[in-house]
Design a protein around this nucleic acid. Structure first.
Lengths: 138, 138
DNA sequence: GTTGTAAATAAGAATTGTTCTCATTTAGGA
DNA sequence: TCCTAAATGAGAACAATTCTTATTTACAAC
């Protein structure tokens, strides 16, 4: 009872993982996650398929954190919080970007607006806790 | 009538250029711009000082476009438009991020919000024009 | 002036994230 | 079985960035 043919097993595994997680993984995080169950997976395949998903609109690049691109299988535009300490990329699902802004942006620049991205940076609650409990002076 | 001592001439030149332009240059763009007037400038110095400015809050990193970090000497939070065709990063000065959003974000994630970034992607007016005039099919 | 010290720098090596190349495997049709 | 096109692994190649080291510079103490 195979869900996917052998031919696309890796591609499917990458997309499935991307859709199942909310950690907004980098290519390497995807690789590390899937390697144990797919021992002959290679980084090339991960990058190749992530880029393919971007082209096809099955995934988006949500941020570049310390030089590393982060991906999201949730292509609905939503807001992110990026922790400067642990590099976590966290969904702020309760917030949404005012749809009206896109129209305003188009007017401002006179061009054709296709996407928008709102993200906050700071220290996430976990890292805040650790800083206090661990006595790590800020 | 030297504005800066010889010791800081390069650092100052980089910051001055960064503040004088609105093209949101990459490290290489800064280098290329200043090299003619400062022939012995090196890329190491550009990167070193850009990172220093970021730490000191004199500059910010506004985006990573096709793997290349882009800088801004204007540290006031404002909105950007990124052209997917020519990689231009353009200020949308008429728009501003609702200050209230930051508070909402802090509530959402329970962490400490320090900055926020709103950017739109699409095709800028120049590239739109070129596509039409040049007859380049999309 | 000379000496000493710390910061700034140039040059290029090293590192790292990403893309490319090419030989191999696989699927599916003729 | 043969053929073709797509997917892949492995590692080379590439590009952006950081690191290393020797040199230069400013400036203060002598």
């Amino acid at each position: 009872m195979e869900v996917s043919t052998k031919h696309f097993r890796k591609r499917d595994a990458i997309l499935t993982y991307l859709r199942s997680t909310d950690i907004h993984p980098s290519a390497e995080m995807v690789f590390t996650q899937l390697k144990p169950e797919i021992p002959d997976l290679s980084m090339g395949t991960v990058y190749r398929n992530l880029n393919l998903f971007k082209q096809q609109g099955l995934a988006v690049s949500v941020a570049t954190v310390k030089g590393v691109e982060r991906f999201d299988g949730n292509t609905e535009p939503h807001v992110h919080f990026i922790c400067q300490d642990c590099d976590a990329v966290i969904d702020l699902m309760d917030m949404n970007v005012p749809e009206s802004l896109k129209a305003v942006a188009a007017q401002c620049c006179g061009g054709q607006v296709e996407g928008c991205q709102l993200s906050f940076t700071g220290i996430c609650c976990n890292c805040l806790d650790n800083q206090i409990k661990g006595g790590k002076a800020v």
